[in-house]
């Protein structure tokens, strides 16, 4: 698997996958829908799938002395690493906003969603959706990724829209907590996001291995 990951990172990956990780810092922007940063990170990963397809990466990988399912797992591992790096930056920004900048007027007067644990949980959720809809969809054919990506975009922006709306509903203001306010609720929502990511990604990877084994290349 280490060799496949090396291949993913050195041959298959687009440089944009690495550069777009930096969009994780958008969690620091006030007055901006912070969850869009998740979309930009996934857009970078999409670029790798695009350049890999142009370079006949899947067929090349199948020729290597590895099991077919490991080709799929290698691709997922690469995706997880990029997502993990993006999430680390986002977590760093959330910690800053919960501690050092917890009383900052720029953030307190922000009418859009606050970058808190709930937002970070939603970032996990959207990454999970990307893995389920786009990456899983890609492995149904290994060449047709337009429909899965458009489906993912629509779903992701619906989630962002709902997330940006929720805290304006009376009784749900705790979703937009600042600092360590409503820490218990925020932690539960964060954990729910992480669990959904694990479930969606695991399901997607298992299904993709199954599909890839069956398709004729």
């Amino acid at each position: 698997m280490r060799n496949l990951l090396f291949k993913e990172m050195h041959l298959s990956a687009s440089i944009l996958s690495y550069l777009f990780i930096l969009f994780g810092f958008m969690f620091l922007l006030p007055g901006y829908p912070v969850l869009c940063s998740v979309f930009f990170v996934t857009l970078g990963i999409f670029q790798s799938f695009q350049s890999a397809r142009e370079a006949n990466d899947i067929v090349f990988s199948v020729f290597l002395p590895v099991a077919k399912k490991d080709v799929v797992k290698g691709k997922y591992l690469f995706v997880f690493i990029i997502e993990g790096c993006g999430l680390l930056l986002m977590a760093f920004c959330v910690i800053l906003r919960m501690t050092v900048f917890s009383a900052s007027p720029v953030y307190l007067s922000n009418s859009l969603m606050n970058a808190n644990l709930f937002a970070l949980g939603l970032a996990f959720f959207i990454f999970g959706l990307f893995n389920l809809i786009f990456v899983g969809g890609f492995f149904k054919t290994t060449y047709n990724f337009g429909r899965p990506f458009v489906t993912y975009i629509i779903t992701a922006f619906l989630v962002i829209l709902v997330a940006e709306t929720l805290h304006h509903i009376p009784g749900l203001q705790a979703l937009n907590a600042f600092g360590t306010d409503s820490f218990g609720l925020q932690s539960v929502l964060f954990a729910a996001g992480v669990i959904s990511f694990v479930l969606m990604s695991g399901l997607s990877c298992a299904k993709a291995c199954e599909c890839f084994e069956k398709i004729d290349l």
């Binding site: 041959l11 370079a55 006949n56």
Partner: peptide, 14 residues
């Protein structure tokens, strides 16, 4: 052809 824009040395190394 595989990875048309990658250096052959990198392909070999992989």
């Amino acid at each position: 052809s595989w990875y048309p824009r990658k250096k052959i040395s990198m392909i070999v190394d992989t």
